[in-house]
Design a protein around this nucleic acid. Structure first.
Lengths: 335, 335
DNA sequence: CTGAAAGCGCTTACAG
DNA sequence: CTGAAAGCGCTTACAG
């Protein structure tokens, strides 16, 4: 009977008739609850995010939601608000809500225990038990290659947390591409978890005086800070110094000059994470109803390349091979 | 029997025994699916967001999730990706997933049709059928009062979309507080939906020459743009001109000088929206099982005041009543 | 006061 | 090839 609706059995005139009948009845919506109970499938994935201070939140959440809805899953969010304890609690809440799998962007330094449902972890490739991540190392390499290609030799690398896998990967990649005739200095600008300097300086002007011509930050936030400090010190960007960031946050294209940065391919990352989850869920399901266990161990870790976004904060310092003219902003200006 | 677990009936030794038995069985999790089917309650709310380009996304999502989980609801997200058609589709997807109510942050200019489930709308107070919103008008008033209090008389108001209720409320509020001995000029800086100026200027330096001393933007994004343009033009902020934004986006405290801005009380807004939903859901439910209809009409529109956040981009222009010293950044500096 | 039974809406083997 | 029945896990009136 309901085969008509689901299109399983073979009906012809009946099919159309039934569908009409059902559809006309004040908009029949085939309650997920009943289906869920019967099939053990809820069609819902959980998404656990670290905390609001992560400016990538929107990109991640949107990408996961998109990838999930594309293959017919809903996404239940849970925010761990930066506390490790909350992260576990968030996971439990999601499980109680019958999610079939969980995508988790772990809080820094957190290991994900083997909970009783499939899990996909999005973090740095250096994180053990990870599922998918941007290739931060390669990102670091590319941004430095971009700068050295422009002729820069002396770079200041700016990070704020030596304990972060993501930042270490990025900086490691950067270092690996410093040419033999160049040098790099790492500037860790903040004790962990601390409010940012309000008016306190990093001494970037001094670095310029020392001969550094490029400031390579591990995030756009740091780059923005460097940018404003250089502005204040009267150092022209990109004429006298180049600045780059990471992540291509929303405002990065808005500041003047626009920030050169590396972008993660979040849609791809999300697709892989959600796809991996869907695979084990759909393989697991016929057998074990709602006791689907185990992490997504079968899926080996995937690294997704990052993409260089060249804007106006990078330019030839003393360019032997000028890759592009920073004087020509792409896009027309209608002001 | 299961009364023991739920704590309804009165059992004493039995209670403890049962709980032990259940709890020991590989961690009994009282499947939402069964409960949902029986009670018609899924305990899940939907959240429909406009699109990723809204930098408030994280604040909103986090606040809603927090408010919802506080009163025992989960949050299923749906992103309308900026398309009006997708918004309806997103709502339908959520309904199919048996959400009991929907919080919707509508796409600009969209009216929410009466769908078959309780809805709470978060938008500008000027939007008809709204449930709760920040008091953007009052926000505009306060930011201008802050500036006039510092002695500013000639203000440039910066917006980008005259069709936005939010922006109009903010600018309306601003205008209403321009003193009789002052003047205000509105600068609409962008044709709708257009890529931002990459290097193209707003002519802010000219405004300064004309005697304007404060630039009051409807969003931090615009303020940041103004800030960088003034920097480039060699105009000191806040010495020669003050700049203010709106929304207190993440990076607003990071730029140097920190951006003075108005902040929405998102936790409060979320609490009201979710609370309104919960009220009609829980009132509605005993009678109509899963056919809970109607919008949250019973809840009259609520305006939540915005809060001034003073940082370093505002200062006395020619201050008759200096409210605070901008030279003293709050917070210690450990650099 | 406690335990067995009915039924929420669905799907899917199973009998007709 | 089609229609009636069983059962997913829960809750809640109802009989003992």
């Amino acid at each position: 009977m309901s085969n008509a609706l689901s299109g399983k059995g073979r009906v012809s005139a009946e099919l159309i008739e039934r569908i009409r009948a059902k559809a006309s009845e004040v908009g029949y919506v085939p309650s997920q609850a009943g289906r869920a109970l019967r099939t053990g499938r809820t069609g819902v994935l959980g998404l656990v995010l670290p905390d609001i201070s992560n400016p990538l939140f929107p990109q991640i959440a949107q990408a996961i939601e998109y990838a999930a809805s594309n293959i017919g899953y809903g996404v239940l969010i849970a925010d761990s608000r930066g506390e490790v304890a909350m992260q576990t609690e968030a996971v439990n809440r999601l499980i109680e809500q019958d999610v079939e799998g969980i995508v988790i962007v772990p809080r820094r330094g957190t290991r994900i225990a083997d909970i009783g449902c499939p899990v996909a972890v999005i973090d740095s490739p250096s994180t053990p038990g990870n599922t998918v991540a941007a290739d931060h190392w390669q990102g670091g390499q590319e941004i430095v290659e971009h700068l050295t290609g422009l002729g820069h030799r002396n770079l200041v690398l700016i990070g704020n947390n030596p304990a972060s896998n993501v930042q270490n990967d990025r900086i490691g990649g950067m270092k690996s591409r410093i040419p033999s005739d160049g040098k790099a200095e790492v500037l860790w600008i903040e004790p962990l978890e601390q409010e940012w300097g309000k008016g306190c300086l990093l001494g970037l002007a001094g670095k310029v005086a020392e001969g550094f011509t490029a400031f390579v930050a591990v995030s756009d936030l740091h780059a923005l800070r460097a940018l404003t400090e250089l502005h204040r010190a009267g150092i022209g960007v990109p004429e006298e110094a180049s600045v780059t960031g990471f992540d291509d946050l929303l405002w990065s294209s808005v500041v003047t000059p626009g920030l050169t940065t590396m972008r993660m391919d979040m849609p791809r990352i999300a697709e892989i994470a959600v796809g991996a989850l869907a695979r084990v869920i759909e393989a697991d399901c016929p057998e074990t109803s709602r006791t689907a266990t185990g992490t997504v161990a079968s899926v080996e870790m995937t690294k997704v390349p990052m993409q260089l976004v060249v804007r106006q904060t990078t330019a030839p310092a003393a360019s032997p091979t000028p890759e592009m003219s920073p004087q020509t902003p792409e896009g027309k200006c209608l002001c």
